[in-house]
Design a protein around this nucleic acid. Structure first.
Length: 467
RNA sequence: GGCGACGUACCCAAGUGGCUAAGGGGACGCUCUGCAAAAGCGUUAUGCAUCGGUUCGAAUCCGAUCGUCGCCUCCA
């Protein structure tokens, strides 16, 4: 059973068959670094990360590129607002972006190319588009000539006539057609600029992705991902700019993520329902936020709420608790076969990255395992290790919702030995019905973040600070 | 106006033609326990917006209606 993905380009579920067997090339549109990114952006970044992780879990060697747009109108505007220059804004928020995705548990991309490091490539790409008749200059600006690319609209399903009918267009536009878009913009005084055959200026919004994806992944690659709102115009324009020269499909599979809403409305600064990922991460763990995202299918809209986050935090404790207890639970006799569970897990997630169904499998597995683990039979050392390994590769490795608590290995650390000793002392006290002493030990440990749990097969312990 | 998505229990959310409609949260009951915590078990949708249709059979396909939302303009 292969991985199946929904391709925006064909509007169908398709088997994932990479260009190169055993490898997968993937490009995700990264941030424009004009501010801290918000929890909607974070959803896209997390989803891209999980797709990348799952591809690796399924055995692909993944080349994952996420660009950083560090020159843009919004950056210039932010520079004016903050009273510093544009490059300082870009630098500040690029650093913040890298910090925040690390905090989100997003694995580093193979490359994070920046637009400003690729100006030469952009200029030469534009020159070639002009030479090919697919672009034209107007007073130092360069526009892409949409009419030169007959397939324009194939991704978004839009027709040029419709665009013209509905779009609000400058009456005195210097563009040949309303759908034409800027490849190069002349700099106004004080704006960041680079020399070009058309004068000092900066690249338009879409061109960098065409140039950088080609540079790092080639003319054609496997997966291009981004938020729903990038379908048009951004990705449509990327296709036009790239394929007008390469005449080969830019990306074979286009994935688009559903929006994150607040109170069922799109998040926006003007509505005041705007949250940065950074702010949310000060209140909830990255694991909780990731689980919250992954409980909804990536193409569906997701409504953001404190209740949802709280429920996610609570639910996660069950998986984390099992993961921890598999280390400290005493060895027993019970056999637990994780094989079928892993098969079900793969079958679920293979179906268009159905992460909610994947979690369904994981939680059912956890329920069964807990039942056995807490019974008087317990689980064998091998069974515990195999289950822990599965959870480490799935819930932790693919989804990134578990963490290795500092729970010291009971068999290899002083803390583990110390806990064993305390538990033994307490067991003695309990045997003598010295409840005051046994509770004193339990309460004291709880105060320093270590929870004792009495079970049929003995007492186990875990860090109580996981959430 | 053009294009598109969605409406499943108290909340969140899978399921897209055929076993008892996953899973998480919440609530209630129970088991275990010295107490607790954790965990497990049971109950919480004869029904999947509404009304028709296709079919031996539909939450799943088709049509209509109502409702919500997104894109077409910077936007993950």
């Amino acid at each position: 059973m292969p991985l199946v993905l929904y391709n925006t380009l064909t509007r169908k579920l398709e088997e994932f068959t990479p260009l190169v067997e055993g490898a997968a090339s993937m490009y995700t549109c990264g941030p424009t670094v004009y501010n801290f990114f918000h929890i909607g952006n974070a959803r896209s970044f997390v989803m891209s990360d999980v797709i990348r992780r799952y591809l690796e879990y399924r055995g692909y060697d993944v080349n994952f590129v996420m660009n950083i747009t560090d020159v843009d109108d919004r950056i210039i505007k932010q520079a004016i607002d903050e009273g510093i220059d544009a490059s300082a804004v870009a630098g500040k928020y690029t650093d913040a972006f890298l910090e925040d995705i690390a905090r989100l548990g997003i694995r580093p991309a193979t490359a994070n190319p920046r637009a400003t490091d690729n100006i030469e490539g952009i200029v030469s790409h534009i020159e070639r588009l002009i030479a090919a008749g697919a672009a034209y200059t107007v007073e130092g600006d360069v526009y892409f000539r949409v009419s030169a690319f007959p397939a324009y609209g194939k991704l978004s399903g839009k027709r040029l006539e419709d665009l013209q009918a509905g779009a609000r267009v400058d009456a005195d536009s210097r563009k040949e057609q309303p759908g034409d878009f800027a490849l190069w913009k002349t700099a106004k005084p004080g704006e960041p600029s680079w020399p070009s055959p058309w004068g000092a200026g900066r690249p338009g919004w879409h061109i960098e992705c065409s140039v950088m994806s080609q540079k790092y992944l080639g003319d054609s690659f496997d997966i291009h991902a981004g938020g729903n709102d990038l379908i048009f115009p951004h990705h449509e324009n990327e296709i036009a700019q790239s394929e007008a020269l390469t005449h080969t499909p830019l990306a074979r599979t286009w994935l688009h993520f559903g929006f994150l809403n607040i109170d069922n409305e799109k998040m926006s600064k003007s509505l005041g329902n705007f949250f940065t990922a950074r702010d949310i991460l000060s209140m909830y763990s990255a694991e909780t936020l990731r689980f919250f995202y992954l409980q909804t299918h990536y193409r569906s809209p997701l409504n953001f709420s404190d209740d949802g986050l709280d429920a996610a935090a609570k639910g996660l404790q069950k998986l984390q608790g099992l993961y921890d207890q598999l280390l400290t639970a005493p060895d027993g006799e019970g056999i637990f076969d994780v094989g079928p569970w892993e098969q079900r897990f793969i079958a679920a997630v293979d179906q268009d990255m159905n992460t909610p169904a994947g979690f369904g499998v994981l939680f059912e597995c956890a329920r069964d395992a807990n039942g056995l683990l807490r019974s008087d039979v317990g689980m064998t050392a091998n069974a515990k290790a195999a289950l822990r390994d599965f959870l480490r590769r799935s819930a932790l490795g693919v989804f990134g919702v578990l963490h290795e608590t500092e729970t010291a290995r009971a068999d290899s650390s002083q803390i583990g030995a110390l806990m064993d000793l305390l538990i033994a002392v307490r067991a003695k006290a309990r045997a003598d019905k010295q409840w005051g002493l046994s509770d004193f030990i339990r309460d004291g440990l709880k105060d320093i973040g270590l929870a004792l749990e009495d079970g049929k097969a003995g007492t186990t312990w875990k860090r109580a600070d996981n959430a």
